[in-house]
C-alpha cells in the first residue's frame, strides 16, 4: 500500500519529465495550426522559392527565397569567421594557456555568453556599422557582413566551450603517448588531439550554426533589413528570423501575412530541429567511439 501523497508526487514527477516532449509537440502543432493556413492561398513551391516578399502589397507575394538566402549568407559569413577563431581559442584555452590565464580567458568567454543579444545588437549599431561604413565606403554599414561579424561573436561561447570540452575529454594517455614518442606539443595537438576530438568539433560547429540561424534581435538591428535577393556581403539583407520579429507586430491576425510569418516559423523550427539532431548524433558518435577503444 502506497501512501497517497507519494503516489501523487510520483505522477507529478513523471508528468514534469514528460513536459519537454509535450512542449516540443505543442510548439510544432501551434506553428502548423497557424502556418498551414497560408497554403490555401499560396503553394509550397511559391512560398519556398518565390523571389518576391511583398506581404502587404495587393495582391501580396509570399516568396521567402530572399529571406532564406539572407539567413544563409549571414550564417555562412558568421561560420567562416567563427569556426577558425573559435577552434583556435578553444585549443589555446584547453592546451596552451597557463592555468591563471586560462581562467581569465574562460571568464571572458562566459561573459560574452551572458551579454543579452539586444545589447550586442545595440553595440553593433553604434560601433561596428559606422566602422564598416568608413572602411568600405558604403552608404550604410548595416549589411550582411555586419550581421556575420556580430553573429560570429554570439556563436563563439557555444563553439569554444563545446570544442574545449571535447579536447579536455580526450584521454590523457593519447597525449602522453604522443609526447613520449618525441612529438612536440603542437604536433600532438594537430596529429592526435584534434582528430580524437573531431566529433565534438563537428557538434560544436553544428550547434554554432543553430545559434546563428536562430538569432533574431541582433540581426534585425544590424543587417539593414532589405528583403531582396542578396548578391554580396556588403549589401543589406534580411533573415528569416528578423522578418518575423519586424513584421509580426503589424500583421493582422488571420491575414495571409500573419499566416506566412508562422509558416516561416515552421521553416525555422524544422531547420533547428535538424541541426540539433545532427549535433547530438555527432556528440553521441564521439562518446561511442571513445568507449570502444
Amino acid at each position: 500500500m502506497k501512501r497517497p501523497f507519494e503516489f501523487i508526487i510520483e505522477k507529478l514527477v513523471l508528468i514534469s519529465g514528460l513536459a519537454s516532449i509535450i512542449f516540443v509537440v505543442l510548439i510544432f502543432v501551434f506553428l502548423l495550426k497557424e502556418g498551414l493556413s497560408l497554403f490555401g492561398q499560396e503553394n509550397l513551391w511559391g512560398f519556398l522559392f518565390g523571389q518576391n516578399w511583398y506581404p502587404i502589397s495587393d495582391p501580396p507575394q509570399f516568396g521567402i527565397l530572399p529571406l532564406i538566402l539572407g539567413s544563409f549568407l549571414v550564417t555562412l559569413g558568421a561560420i567562416i569567421i567563427a569556426v577558425p577563431l573559435g577552434l583556435a581559442s578553444a585549443i589555446y584555452v584547453a592546451e596552451v594557456a597557463p592555468s591563471g590565464i586560462r581562467d581569465v580567458l574562460k571568464t571572458g568567454i562566459e561573459l560574452l555568453a551572458a551579454i543579452p543579444s539586444i545589447v550586442l545588437g545595440f553595440i553593433g549599431i553604434v560601433t561596428l556599422a559606422p566602422f564598416l561604413k568608413n572602411v568600405f565606403h558604403l552608404s550604410s554599414g548595416l549589411t550582411a557582413l555586419a550581421g556575420s561579424i556580430m553573429l560570429a561573436f554570439m556563436a563563439m561561447p557555444t563553439i569554444v566551450s563545446i570544442i574545449e570540452d571535447s579536447i579536455v575529454s580526450v584521454p590523457k594517455s593519447y597525449k602522453e603517448g604522443s609526447l613520449a614518442l618525441g612529438a612536440t606539443r603542437w604536433q600532438t595537438i594537430y596529429r592526435v588531439i584534434l582528430p580524437a576530438a573531431s566529433s565534438g568539433i563537428l557538434a560544436a560547429i553544428m550547434l554554432g550554426i543553430g545559434r546563428v540561424v536562430g538569432e533574431t534581435m541582433a540581426v534585425l538591428m544590424i543587417t539593414g533589413n532589405a528583403a531582396v535577393m542578396p548578391t554580396s556581403f556588403l549589401q543589406p539583407v534580411r533573415t528569416l528570423t528578423a522578418t518575423v520579429a519586424a513584421e509580426m507586430g503589424e500583421a493582422v491576425a488571420g491575414s495571409g501575412h500573419y499566416y506566412a510569418l508562422f509558416a516561416i516559423g515552421i521553416v525555422l523550427f524544422v531547420i533547428s530541429f535538424a541541426i540539433n539532431l545532427l549535433a547530438d548524433w555527432f556528440l553521441h558518435r564521439g562518446k561511442k567511439k571513445r568507449k570502444k577503444r
Binding site: 516532449i21 510548439i27 501551434f30 540561424v213 525555422l268 533547428s272 530541429f273 540539433n276 539532431l277
Partner: peptide
C-alpha cells in the same frame, strides 16, 4: 532529445508559439 530540441528552437519561434 526533446530537451535538446527545446534548447535549440530559435527564440523568435518561441515568440510565435
Amino acid at each position: 532529445l526533446a530537451i535538446i530540441n527545446l534548447a535549440g528552437v530559435p527564440s523568435i519561434v518561441y515568440g510565435l508559439f
